[in-house]
Amino acid sequence: MNFTNSDVKISIQDVYKSFGNNHVLRGAFLEIKKGESMVVIGGSGTGKSVLIKCVIGLLKPEKGEIYIDGQEVASLKEGDLNEIRKKFGMLFQWGALFDSMRVWENVSFGLRQHTRLKDTEIKDIVIEKLKLVGLRNVENLMPSELSGGMRKRVSLARAIAMEPEILLYDEPTTGLDPIMADVINELIIHLREKIKVTSIAITHDMVSAYKIADRIAMLYKGEIIEVGTPEGIRNSKNEIVQQFIQGRAEGPITREQ
């Protein structure tokens, strides 16, 4: 095992997670290198969201280890986890915006909690981050006044506001029009190239996956069945992977059900 290797930023080792009789993760392994953009694909309900929630400590695996910068986190207490979480930014699948706060309060939440920046500085950062996700003049709106795609982008702005080392994106482009989806793809690439963030992105959008991924991992039946470069995944010999990336109704995935 090479999880102490300093090149590895996130290491997921044999993780199991179930809810009652629903065994969602059944021995998942995955390593993400420093500065790497990993995309996780897999069918709806296979546990992709559960996997990244385990990484950031929102869910506790029953078994297995997760290392962040060589430190085991799955067994950490809440207080220590809090410190580790400062390295992270997370975009939730449904946005998870604080609906009692205005857009600018949402985006600046981490800054206001953890830094002593002045109001004017915070305002500037908020406007800059919103611009990065393609939004302007929305600072004073409430989340309920935004469209679904706008909420998602505000949520992304909130995730990147603290300039974290690691970003977890849960379906960053679903619900966006193709042009906006590409703006977000470019932003994810920009964050990787310029700020060298390490990221895990979950997506069903194969166009986006090929574009933003250094490597792609496929989750199937609670395990990562294949990891490879976009090229490698495209040419995979695995029937399951082929059926998924081509989006065919006929194949081993649907036959097994």
Partner: peptide, 21 residues
């Protein structure tokens, strides 16, 4: 009702990810 809504819409999880208890 308020905290329950925050729970089911993952806003409480979002607080954790923003390193806020």
């Amino acid at each position: 009702a308020e905290l329950g809504t925050m729970q089911v819409t993952e806003q409480i999880d979002a607080l954790y990810t923003l390193a806020t208890n």
